[in-house]
Design a binder for these strands. Structure first.
Lengths: 228, 228
DNA sequence: CTTTCTTTGTGTCAAAATAACACAAACGGA
DNA sequence: TCCGTTTGTGTTATTTTGACACAAAGAAAG
């Protein structure tokens, strides 16, 4: 095909912010670069878009080859255009964020290469490129999204206790939420469904197990859980 | 500079959804193409990104050269990646939407070329490329954004009546909102400030003029104006 | 000047939602 | 059996909401 644009095209990268929820902490998957630029520094996993690929396909390729993951929740985040964001030249970065339940994948520590590591979102090291900006945007998006979309369920097991859900929200939003009001709102909104089962083998009272309500209408839903 | 990406790069276009508010109707600016593909069809204004340009600069270039506009509210919308979206080959489209007050610009009909035209958002013609998808996404974004961000003020004059603001919301959201409850919510939230002035020269009672509250804290703001 | 018609500003009020709490049941361990 | 903790289920005062009523302000018509 003959060129139809008289402009030189910038390179196009896809970068991923992979969120996971570990031991009551939100974490991000970072990759230690082996080549310049930013050799030996932590960065978000990413790859250049191949000419015939969709963004999602590039995401899948990154998740599969670099992280050994498959079939995760993905959402487009933003496209970054700072001309100086890559020292090698003009690279546009189209970014996505992923929500992963490490329990469901076997990569918790095993299959994961040792240059890939989960980091608590509160203890992020210095990142190469403009990846700190990308990460910040992703966290901000997650915070606002969780208020009107059941995003948290991607991070939890299929069955979960109300406490687990509650702690996840407190952790992502970074605020305290009254346990009892939170529970009531989740129930009256039919955000979650009580399975009747209970989690056994714990100390203290055995909590009930809930599951996400798949029939939830996402529109006209508003989870007002922030105390000023 | 030597190429650092082994991949062939797709072309990168920037397309714009320019919203305006005319005579109590939300409208979009469309451009009649003069060249193939989609010759003589309506499309969103757009251009190829030049290698040294930021997205915003490309937007400004489009607004300036094709539409004779300057200095408008811009926000990145989404990046579209369908490999078949352009018959000429692989073109990624990074899209922005703009909010314009036609009163403030002189292009209402005068400076505007005759291949550029405002269309009521309810009477959009068939669009070339995947521009209908882009438009739909922009309208959807505007609808949700207006509920928690004072986006409407970009579309109105600096001073406006409560009715004007009210009609704008009804028009964008496509629903009826109780005039009196709307007014009360806008005032208690300090979304708008009463200037004390009144609009003269109208029939009937002269309405008070308001202005946007620039000290508004956008966070923890929630405008609940939808009646179920 | 009075009447009429429309728009605008300001209330009212019952119902629903919210935030802040109280308390008892359920569990393991001492 | 008692203790400390977690969990489930209320209660209550306060705020917010939705759905109205009504009078004041203006222009036009008689």
């Amino acid at each position: 095909m003959k060129p139809f644009s008289s402009y030189k095209n910038p390179a196009l990268a896809v970068d991923l912010v992979v969120f996971g929820y570990h031991e009551q902490n939100l974490s991000v998957l970072l990759l230690n670069r082996k080549e310049a630029p930013f050799k030996d520094q932590w960065t978000l996993p990413g790859a250049f878009l191949q000419i015939e690929e969709t963004f999602q396909q590039t995401c899948s390729r990154i998740l599969k080859t670099k992280l050994g993951m498959d079939d995760v929740y993905l959402e487009q985040l933003f496209s970054f255009d700072d001309p100086a964001r890559d020292p090698r030249g003009r690279v546009i970065s189209v970014t996505y964020y992923a929500l992963v339940n490490p329990h469901k994948l076997e990569i918790a520590a095993g299959k994961m290469a040792n240059d890939v590591q989960w980091f608590n979102v509160k203890k992020i090291p210095a990142l190469g490129f403009d990846h700190k900006k990308i990460f910040d945007k992703a966290l901000q998006r997650l915070k606002s999204k969780i208020l009107y979309f059941p995003v948290g369920f991607e991070l939890l097991d299929e069955l979960f206790t109300m406490s687990e859900l509650h702690q996840l929200y407190e952790c992502i939003l970074g605020i305290e939420i009254d346990r009892r009001n939170f529970s009531r709102k989740m129930l009256v909104a039919e955000y979650v469904i009580n399975t009747g089962q209970k989690r056994e083998g714990l100390q203290n009272r055995h909590p009930e197990l809930f599951r996400f309500n798949k029939k939830l209408k996402h529109h006209n839903f508003q989870l007002n859980i922030i105390n000023p």
